[in-house]
Simulated scan of single mutants.
Amino acid sequence: MKRGIGSAPCHHGELLQGVFLDGQGERRAGLVTLPLDAHGTRAEFLPRPGGAIEVVPHDRTKALRAAVLTRDLCADRLQAEPCGGELRLLGDVPVGLGMGSSTSDVIATVRAVADAYEVALGPAEVARIAVRAEQACDPLMLDGRPRLFAQRDGRVIEEFGARLPALIVVGCALSGGRPVDTLALPSLGDEQIHVYEQLRALFRRALKTGDRALVGRVCTASARLGQRRLRHPDFDALTAVAARSGALGVQIAHSGCVAGVLFDPASPGVHRRLRLCSRELERAGLPATRTFSTLPASVPVPASPYEESFHGRAHRRGDRPAGSGTSRRAAPVPAVRDHEGRLRARRRTPSA
């Protein structure tokens, strides 16, 4: 066996989440995530004799479960003895904000262990392991195409097409960046399934026709429905900022506090709108965290004067929020922003 390497991205919350009907007419919790390519987890698996697997940092219990499940699957497939080893995780996914940090850990782990065994696992197999490891998972084992994904079943309910329409997102965090214990939230009610199915149909139409305004309306409606569970006290402030800055709408993480204000990059005065949005978020106590786009990386995104990026080793021991299988807490958003400001200041300072 060899040293195994794996990686996985994260996301910026959801565009749509609710209860939907699958192809057999069964009700399934489902979501459509907003991809974010700038962050992710990198896993390294170092095989060694014996059956025990250790993980560094030691609190990554979900990743450890994923490592054991993947090790056992690969060993059984090769008719080999299960090995032990050390799993090392590094990443820059902000934790506790609903950006899929746990799933990113798990998928990177699965890929690293499978790589050590030189066993190819398809997305469906990776998804099944991820669900077993953390009860529900985000569709980070798939590519960035928009899909309605059943997070508790680890399978796709509907494919919406090749890509999202062009959007610019000004990110922020609600509730002061406080983490959300996902498993403690009340379940989505089946009584609203007709509403979610209507939003699904509108989202499908919006992507088929490239209607960015309709995408914004669907995302905002989904976010409002999510408020029945999340109850962010500053959600109304977020939507007010979006209205004042001429945005298409808002999106939020339905299992965290990350949020985004959505803009049409082709709208008149988009640079001015982005600057206004960042200023208004500051005034509302919702500091802008990152401006990014669903456009290809080769297309430049208009910069905001308040733009911040989440970089650095966000995965540190003691960073996960409390909840099943996790024991870390997230740094408050202002602390992240101060750290990034110091990094930029150092880069601007000429060396002696």
Results as ranks from 00 to 15, higher is better:
Arg228Tyr: 06
His11Phe: 08
Ser267Cys: 10
Val95Phe: 02
Pro305Tyr: 03
Met141Leu: 08
Gly210Ile: 04
Asp236Ser: 14
Arg273Met: 04
Lys208Gly: 15
Ala221Arg: 07
Gln135Met: 13
Asp236Gly: 12
Phe45Asp: 03
Pro139Asp: 01
Leu69Pro: 09
Val270Ile: 09
Pro35Arg: 04
Ala284Glu: 04
Arg231Ala: 13
Pro334Trp: 09
Gln24Asp: 15
Ala284Pro: 05
His58Asp: 15
Gly4Phe: 01
Pro287Cys: 06
Ser267Val: 06
Gly341Trp: 10
Thr294Leu: 11
Arg71Tyr: 08
Asp92Cys: 07
Glu307Met: 12
Ala223Pro: 03
Pro321Met: 08
Val95Met: 14
Thr291Glu: 07
Ala114Val: 10
Gly171Trp: 09
Gln192Met: 14
Gly6His: 03
Ala112Ser: 10
Cys257Thr: 15
Gly171Glu: 08
Gly176Leu: 02
Ala297Arg: 12
Ala335Ser: 12
Ala63Gly: 06
Asp264Met: 02
Ala314Gln: 15
Glu14Met: 03
Leu164Ile: 08
Ala63Glu: 06
Val218Glu: 04
Arg346Pro: 09
Glu14Ile: 01
Glu44Lys: 04
Ala130Tyr: 06
Asp234Ile: 04
Ala75Ile: 10
Ala130Asp: 05
Ser101Phe: 07
Ile168Asn: 02
Ala201Thr: 11
Arg42Ile: 12
Gln251Thr: 07
His58Ile: 12
His58Ser: 15
Phe149Cys: 02
Asp76Ser: 15
Ser278Arg: 05
Gln151Pro: 06
